[in-house]
């Protein structure tokens, strides 16, 4: 089950990179970035997962060596990463809107005034 998660996360990462490299539509590039990010998020959450573990919520003194719970640190990292991913999407879409206004197209092959 966990193995399937790892495979899925690497599949998502590769899919995201494929999308960025191959698709000429700016919006699809942004979608590729998001997929890449989801893949990494899935990887993080999978690493922290312990099969059968409880939620890592304990009060002072409640925690014993016998407590079995999932690792809380990757969950915190994932939250941060999701926020950053949302920012990347928002900012890149804002840039796409502005680019469309200036260049009249969202084809990456035509947005290349800076080259050489």
């Amino acid at each position: 089950m966990i193995l399937f998660n790892y495979i899925a996360s690497f599949f998502l990462i590769v899919l995201g990179l494929y999308c960025i490299v191959v698709k000429y539509n700016l919006v699809k590039t942004v979608i590729g970035l998001s997929i890449l990010d989801y893949g990494v998020n899935l990887l993080i959450i999978t690493i922290g997962f312990n099969p059968g573990g409880t939620a890592p919520i304990f009060t002072q003194g409640e925690i014993t060596p016998a407590s079995y719970f999932v690792d809380p640190i990757p969950q915190a990292l994932t939250l941060t990463s999701i926020v950053i991913g949302a920012c990347v999407t928002a900012m890149s879409l804002a840039l796409v809107i502005k680019l469309e206004e200036q260049y009249g197209t969202i084809d990456t092959r035509e947005i290349r005034r800076l080259r050489g």
Binding site: L17, I20, V88, S92, L95, K98, L99, I111, R113, L114
Partner: peptide, 15 residues
């Protein structure tokens, strides 16, 4: 080219 540069930087920088 300001927007264009920013977008390219954002994509590759995010990778």
């Amino acid at each position: 080219g300001a927007l264009e540069a920013a977008f390219k930087y954002l994509v590759v920088g995010s990778i």
